[in-house]
Amino acid sequence: MRLKIAAAAALILAALPFAASADGEVNIYSYRQAYLINPLLKAFEKETGIETNVVFAKNGLAERLEREGRNSPADVVMTVDISRINELVERDLVASVRSDTLEKNIPENLRHPDGKWFALTTRGRLIYTSKDRVKAGEITTYEELADPKWKGRICTRSGKHPYNIALISSMIAHHGLEETEQWLRGLKANLARKPQGADRDQIKAIAEGVCDVSIGNSYYYGNMLQDENERPIAEQVRLVFPNADGRGTHINISGIALTKSAPNRDNAIKLMEFLSSPEAQRIYAEANTEYPANPAVKPSGLVASWGEIHPDALPLQTIAAHRDEAVKLVDRVDFDG
């Protein structure tokens, strides 16, 4: 058995050594990094004897599937957020899956209503605050990010990043477009600097005193705590689970979808079912300090130590439906300008 792994996504995308109809294989296009999914795939190979072949890429997989059409060797696509997986649905690149196992393991709000995608892990889009300059409980909701009291005190990555687009989409779903626009303008007015960097950089900015509050995914904080060099930085930040006492904290997902062209459909569904199993969910969630999508599996010790998360129960497909509005809204308020 072997796992074909791309050392450089660009090279792999240029020449893919898949045999589209080989027996005993499943071919994977993945936005998730190799270190996160390799342990899962090795466990799957050991349990089933089915060989896994992988293409890793940061972007462009939807376009690649469109170019390849019915001749695509890809059986499944693994994604890092709801925006990218919904793009596959909108471009009609994925097929519906009806599986009692998947429907039992993955809650209804964490899967497409027609089985066109399934969540594998979840993460909260949280608020980070300075332990020194922001009191516990001083900010508890996303809505409060627009409060003028935070003027010049908030940092964030680009508003156009899929993680922020998903958050803005959820605000539209809950409050409507007009109210969300007012909120986004208020948030922009409170920024300490032009949106930049990634979520880890916002934690670093708080530690450096550039800002007091930021927005970020929960697992970045966990990853920094597990890094000897970054732990002292992360320890200067407090996690806030926004709207925990109301509608719940916005969550995003990593997910998986079956391609319409899947040459190894049966093996692909076996992989999807395996990844939803308690065994795989524990491996997957612990690898990146995420929350298991399968409610029967508890979060890892580190993640559990942060306290219980109360996720927004709104179906992610409902949130994803507002993506285009969110993108246009970010441009209209010139959020990154």
Rank of each mutant, 00 (worst) to 15 (best):
N164V: 01
E63W: 05
M171K: 14
D75G: 06
N217T: 06
P311Y: 11
S83P: 00
P242W: 09
A57I: 11
R133G: 00
D201W: 06
D147H: 12
T249C: 15
R133C: 00
G246P: 04
G216I: 00
R133K: 14
N217M: 04
I50G: 00
D227Y: 12
S276K: 04
I206G: 05
K58C: 10
A207L: 10
I319T: 12
A257H: 02
L40I: 08
G60M: 00
G49M: 07
Y128M: 10
I168Y: 05
A321F: 10
M1Q: 13
Y35M: 12
I106A: 01
S30C: 04
Q226V: 03
Q202M: 15
L126C: 15
R247W: 10
I37N: 07
L36D: 13
L61D: 06
N109F: 11
D336I: 14
R70H: 10
W150V: 02
L16D: 15
G159M: 06
P263K: 09
N288V: 13
R64A: 11
K194E: 15
G152C: 05
E230W: 00
L275T: 08
Y163E: 11
D100F: 00
V89H: 00
E178T: 04
P73W: 12
T79G: 02
A268T: 00
K188G: 08
I37H: 10
G60Y: 02
R200D: 15
S305E: 11
A173N: 11
A136M: 09
N105P: 08
R123I: 03
M171R: 14
H310V: 15
E235N: 11
Y291E: 06
P292F: 03
L302S: 11
T121D: 02
R265I: 02
L88G: 05
L258H: 02
R67A: 15
D199K: 01
N164R: 01
G159H: 00
R2W: 09
R133V: 00
I206P: 04
S254A: 11
W117P: 06
S305W: 13
L102W: 01
Q196R: 12
R185S: 13
T52V: 04
G115E: 10
L239E: 01
E178A: 15
E68L: 15
G222F: 02
A95T: 07
Y284D: 14
K328H: 05
A22K: 11
G124S: 13
I106L: 00
A296D: 13
K328Q: 14
Q281G: 13
I283S: 08
V237M: 01
P315I: 06
Y29H: 07
L314C: 12
A296C: 11
E273P: 01
L11T: 15
A6C: 14
R125T: 13
N288R: 10
D312E: 15
I215R: 04
A285P: 00
Y128P: 01
W183N: 08
E47K: 13
V210H: 06
G307E: 12
A304P: 01
P107E: 10
R123M: 08
G69D: 10
A43L: 07
R332Y: 07
K104T: 15
N294Y: 10
R247M: 09
K58L: 09
V54K: 07
T52N: 04
K194H: 11
H175D: 08
